[in-house]
Design a protein around this nucleic acid. Structure first.
Lengths: 345, 345
DNA sequence: ACCTTGTATTCTCACGTTGTAGTCGCGGCG
DNA sequence: CGCCGCGACTACAACGTGAGAATACAAGGT
């Protein structure tokens, strides 16, 4: 025997079988429900399973069947509130269908994202849910192993994988229109990226533009300060640039909530009151938006629904219940109006 | 054949062996270097490996060696910024040693925590890193399977497992002393729990007390409003209670940053300026603390170091490089002074 | 020349699981 | 009365790997 001898080994099918006085395969049948088992036997086996605390060895199952019941979930930036909140929903949705989730953090690095999309993170993985940031279409096509993949977010990486996203153009348009309805007229946007804007930036800018033009307003290029990334400091520094303008804006649409929170801070540092001197709105509806001072108006995707759809979609691929062309799924959103955009003007 | 037929099958040891005209075990020896192999043979085998693009099947290897290469990481509340930020560091530290992390969220429920600590999570798990909340020592002792376990945080669950934590008493004392040094005298603390305070509450209160007494100040029971949990709303409601007092405090030490952020909001709603009317400090140094308005003074644990130590410690147990008594590891912390506690008084 | 020593390689089995091909017993039908 | 068919269960093989025991072979000492 070469195995390391560690006290009580985890119970195996064999142990359950002996206790229940049946064959190993019968226990396997009870666990998987592949073959009908007589009610009396099933009950006896189930009692033995509970008594021993049996849990299937996924490594062995994977070796035998090629499936493990584990999927990977990768975000560019896990501590970002939006991703963390979405992650919890994905884990919950997966658990509801008996699937375990391995989390990973790519840092937005294309190489790390490709690694995940190829399932090389762990050989035991059946499928992947990935929110890409740096990955481009050509790179994704070069992945070494084609495992079922569902993409989250707005990046269009071609017809290689199913994708779940919300309508960014419509969301941006809706929240911009809300600013206009509240009476703001000189409206800036924080989140454009120059050079090489991400899909998020392009789509939210399009929505922003459409809303302004629809209201007969013009888009002032000076009111579109570019940012490097989508974190608080980026929002703060963009806001500072806006506030230095001779004719500063009276409202700002930030392309995500973190940018908005940074902008909020910069406005505060400049001695401005929000929303009386300047309105600020965001996108994502992270929990913190509700507790910001002032609380933040934002576009709220239905995170639970997104997670649910992504998991369902991936499982259909893994279980080969669906094998058609790649699908694009677009759940809805709401605009949540809070203090940061509702001055009594 | 029952395996799902997916295109060209990956090359196996057997294929390499046939091409190189040696036995399977010899190839295995070349790959793993367990047994010396003659130079000529090794070269021939290596050429065959390269020619076929052979890559070991980790699933099979794991089945054989009894290890899964997966560890579980469980927090009471994953979307909490402190836990999310720590989780990312653990994932990164684990990846550096070739280990995959399975994340779980216990909600602080003792039963869920026991399940995790027993390795009954879902897949085959080599070890567990757990941040317990509700679990007590007696319950932990009753775990059904003794798998390597490293605890994170201040809860002392006896000598059953290694534990990585920072010195909460010292951290609380240091940040309280900072408030005293800044000239604040009527100092409150938000985070006590009544009944059944957690270890966190007890230790941070002890540090708080020690600092006050060391400065010749007395602890006013009215300035210790209990909270239910450690989220923003708890901090906000405790703060509102404090502000209703006839003789309200001039500074508040919150036992974590989320409480402090909630307190900040309540102070703002009450029309108070921070830190001029009242100072607020926290604990954890979550990223958000730096961008709060005003930015938050807090106690900063070195999350990367904590994660590194926890993973290293666990791997030593898993690989049986260490089998001695359970260890208590206490990395350092810093007090990060920001705006919320530095009025020009 | 034969045996010992040691090194290089092969043989065989087991890890825990599931699919296939059975076996067993029982009731119904010819 | 015997045979068929059916449902419930069992025996066995195999997934790819790694470890120990067994074997082959060469060199050196007697």
């Amino acid at each position: 025997m070469s195995m390391p001898t560690e006290g009580p080994t985890a119970p195996r099918l064999k142990d359950v079988a002996e206790l229940a006085q049946v064959s190993v395969k019968t226990v396997s049948n009870v666990v998987n429900g592949t073959t009908p088992v007589a009610e009396a036997t099933r009950e006896r086996v189930q009692r033995a399973i509970d008594a021993l605390g049996y849990h299937p060895n996924l490594t062995a199952r994977r070796l035998r069947t090629g499936r493990s019941g584990v999927i990977a979930l990768a975000f560019p930036e896990l501590p970002s509130p939006y991703f963390a909140e979405l992650a919890v929903e994905v884990i919950a949705a997966a658990r509801r269908v008996g699937i375990t989730v391995l989390m990973d953090d790519t840092g937005g690095d294309p190489a790390a994202e490709l690694r995940i999309a190829s399932g090389l993170g762990d050989p035991m993985i059946d499928g992947v849910i990935l929110s890409p940031l740096g990955l481009d279409q050509a790179t994704l096509l070069s992945r070494s192993r084609e495992i079922p993949l569902v993409l989250l977010g707005e990046a269009d990486l071609g017809p290689v994988a199913d994708r779940v996203h919300i309508d960014n153009v419509a969301g941006a348009r809706a929240v911009t229109r809300h600013l206009i309805d509240e009476g703001y007229r000189r409206i800036a946007a924080i989140g454009w990226q120059d050079p090489s804007p991400r899909a998020t930036a392009e789509q939210r800018l399009t929505g922003f533009r459409t809303a302004l033009e629809g209201a007969g307003l013009t888009v002032d290029q000076a009111l579109l300060p570019p940012v490097r990334a989508y974190f608080r400091p980026d929002g703060a520094s963009a806001m500072r640039r806006l506030l230095k303008l001779p004719d500063r804006p009276d409202a700002v649409f930030c392309f995500n909530d973190l940018l908005a929170l940074g902008a909020l801070r910069a406005a505060h540092e400049a001695g401005l009151r929000v929303p009386d001197d300047i309105a600020i709105v965001g996108f994502d509806d992270v929990e913190e938006a509700e507790y910001a001072i002032p609380s933040l108006t934002t576009v709220a995707p239905d995170k639970r629904h997104i997670a649910e759809l992504a998991v369902r979609c991936l499982m259909e691929r893994i279980e080969k219940r669906y094998d058609g062309p790649s699908r694009l799924i677009t759940p809805g959103f709401r605009v949540v109006v809070r203090e940061s955009s509702t001055s009594a003007r």
